[in-house]
Nucleic acid binder design. Structure first.
Lengths: 155, 155
DNA sequence: CATGGATACGTGCATATGCATGTATTGGCA
DNA sequence: TGCCAATACATGCATATGCACGTATCCATG
C-alpha cells in the first residue's frame, strides 16, 4: 500500500501532473474539447469567429431555416444556451432570427453576409482540421468522430 | 448529383437534424462534452457541485497543494480560466488559495471541508459514471478515455 | 367557445473558458 | 549592484452553457 507517504523528495511531482489516467469520462471529454477548441478558435479568429460560431453557421447552412429548438437539437445544445449564442451572430448580421409560421416559433436562417462569412471561414476551418488531423491522424480522427457520435446518440 | 433540389416535400427534414455525420472534430468533441457533462452535472448537483468543479477538487486531492499554473496544466485548462473557476470553490471554503513559496506563486489546496465534500460527491460521481457506462459500455468508455488522452497529449 | 395541457421561447442567475494586457517577482548577467 | 528577460498571476472583455422559472401560443375537448 504505497500512495500514503507524505515526505517524498521534492523531485518528480512533475510526472504526477501529466501521468494520471483519469477514470472520469466527463473530465476526459472536457479536457479534449478544451484542447481541440483552442486549435479551431485560433484559426477561426482570423475570420472573427469562434469555432463554436462556425459550427452554428455551418449547421444552419446545411439545414436551412429552422426554429431555435430544432437547431439546438441538431447542435446537441440546450435550447436556451443556443438562444443566447445566437445573439452575437445576429448582432453581426450573420443570421436572421425572424417570426416562424407558428406564433410562438422563431425561424433562424443564414443571411447573405452570413453565407459569405461562412465560406471564408471554411478555408480556415480546413486549416484547423488539417492541423489536428496531421498530428492525430486522419483515420483516427474519423474513428474518433464516429465514437463521439455514438456517445451522443447512445446515452 | 442529388443534394441540390430545393423543393422537397416538407416531410422528413427531421432526419437531416439527426443524420449528418459532422466532419468537424471540434464540433463532435463539443457536442459529446456538452451531452455527457449534463449527466454528471445532474448527479453532482445533489452535492452542490458542477461536474467541472468535482474534477478540480478531485485533481487537487490527487496532486496535493500546488500553484495555479500547475493545476491548470493538469486540468488542460487555460491558466486564467482556472484562476476564475477557483473563485466559487474558494468562496465556499472548499479550497484555499494562499501564498506560495515564491513571491509570485500562489498555492492551491483542498480544505478539510473540501475533502469532506469531495468524498460525498465521489458517491454521486460513481452514479454518473455508472449511468454513462451502462449505456455506452464500460470497455468502450475506457477505450474512449484512452483515445481522448491521446488527443490531449498528441496535438 | 372556454379551458387545461403541451409547445416554443425568453429571462435571471451562476459558471465555464480564453485572449490580450498589465503587474509583481525572480534570477541571471554585464 | 542595476537592469532585462522570464515567470506567475490578475483583470477587462466577450463568449459559451444550463437550470429554474415565467410567458405566449396552440390544440384537443367538453
Amino acid at each position: 500500500m504505497p500512495k500514503r507517504e507524505a515526505a517524498k523528495p521534492p523531485s518528480p511531482a512533475d510526472d504526477a501532473v501529466m501521468n494520471d489516467m483519469t477514470p472520469c469520462n466527463n473530465l476526459a471529454l472536457r479536457q479534449a474539447a478544451r484542447h481541440v477548441s483552442q486549435i479551431y478558435d485560433r484559426h477561426m479568429a482570423e475570420a472573427g469567429l469562434r469555432g463554436s460560431q462556425y459550427s452554428i453557421l455551418s449547421k444552419l447552412s446545411r439545414l436551412g431555416a429552422l426554429p431555435i429548438g430544432r437547431l439546438a437539437e441538431a447542435m446537441v445544445m440546450d435550447r436556451t444556451a443556443l438562444g443566447r449564442a445566437l445573439g452575437p451572430l445576429e448582432r453581426d448580421k450573420l443570421i436572421k432570427v425572424g417570426e416562424g409560421p407558428d406564433g410562438r416559433t422563431r425561424s433562424v436562417s443564414l443571411t447573405a453576409l452570413g453565407q459569405t462569412r461562412l465560406a471564408e471561414a471554411a478555408v480556415l476551418w480546413r486549416k484547423a482540421q488539417d492541423e489536428f488531423e496531421a498530428r492525430f491522424g486522419v483515420v483516427e480522427a474519423e474513428s474518433l468522430r464516429a465514437t463521439l457520435k455514438r456517445v451522443v446518440n447512445t446515452v
